[in-house]
């Protein structure tokens, strides 16, 4: 197997995620897109770990998973609070402060 097939898969996932976080209106969907980004990083890390025959990449991936869990928790709490205050989860409408 080529290393690059994994890396390019990851790059595609990453860019899909980027599109998602910029273009989706719903807060929860934005958070899902972030997961795509983080997953692409994990694929990279694990692929490199195999390539370099070093364990650090897998450790790194585990930490990324754990941090992702924490981030999603916080993110959902914030989306929930947004929903309470604005009665919507459309983060495009959350723009009181600008300029």
């Amino acid at each position: 197997m080529l290393l690059n097939q994994f890396l390019i898969l990851a790059a595609i996932l990453f860019c899909t995620g980027v599109y998602g976080v910029i273009s989706r209106r719903n807060g929860v969907l934005v958070l899902m897109s972030i997961e795509l980004i983080l997953n692409s990083v994990n694929i990279n890390l694990v692929a490199f770990s195999a390539m370099n025959d070093s364990i650090s990449g897998q450790v790194f991936a585990l930490f990324v998973i754990a941090v992702a869990a924490a981030e999603v928790g916080v993110g959902l709490a914030i989306v929930l609070a947004i929903f309470r205050n604005y009665r919507t989860v459309d983060i495009d409408e959350v723009d009181l402060m600008k300029g």
Partner: peptide
């Protein structure tokens, strides 16, 4: 409303940046 908006913006941009940073770190590690 502004309070939670502040948190939301910081959080989202922070997580976006984390994503980019992690991708970069993975390349460096690779």
């Amino acid at each position: 409303q502004t309070g939670i908006e502040a948190g939301m913006k910081y959080y989202l941009i922070g997580v976006f940046a984390t994503g980019v940073m992690l991708y970069g770190m993975s390349l460096i590690y690779g």
